[in-house]
Amino acid sequence: MTSLSGAFFAVIQRDLAIAMRHRGDLLNPLFFFLIVVTLVPLGISPEPARLAAIAPGMIWISALLATLLALDNLFQADFDDGSLVQLMLSPQPLWLLVLAKIIAHWLVTGLPVVLFSPLLGLMLSLPQAGFLPLLLGLVLGTAMFSLMGAVGAALTVALHKGSVLLSLLVMPLYVPVLIFGTSAVQRAVDGMNYGGVMAMLAAVTAFSLLLAPFAAAGALKVGING
């Protein structure tokens, strides 16, 4: 018999191995992230004071869009080559395997965005106090984006409609994270305590962690029928 942890880690390991063999795809969300943030001074103003004022929101919005861009591929490729069906026919609980896929997906899309964000903060003249809450918030926030995004990705897996429908489905769910995430940074910049806001962000992410694997597993069972 296969073991629960064996299956869980095999899924993560395989998805990471595939990502490492398509390093170009790995960089796509990062370039997108960078491009959006480069457009901001060009479109608004190069003045550091004005950039600093909008930096928290801009970085969060581009991080959201960057992870959204990569969400499409969470189940789609596996569906197309038939390995998703093999995953679903495992005697192991599906929600656990789905969670493993979400974790792997976050490691290759969310985490790079998080690690990249200080650089963008620098480029947008984000005040020093904002960097730590930005990093912390993005860790929690991108995790939530991957978790809830998985439900949308599972529902649309067989539709081949591109990411437009997927964005429409998950964007409303991302609203609280965006609000809490940006205001945590803003409060830190304004010299206020941001612990409470961060706690709320953590609560939203924890709630998604409880809900999303089950919802996504259920959504997959429906979604693969197209």
Binding site: T2, Q13, D81, S83, L97
Partner: peptide
């Protein structure tokens, strides 16, 4: 559909599958 990842080797594909299924 074969269920194989084209970027992985046959051995890697089977190793992954054998963790999921008996």
């Amino acid at each position: 559909q074969t269920g194989l990842k084209l970027s992985l080797t046959p051995r890697e594909n089977l190793r992954w599958l054998s963790q999921l299924q008996p």
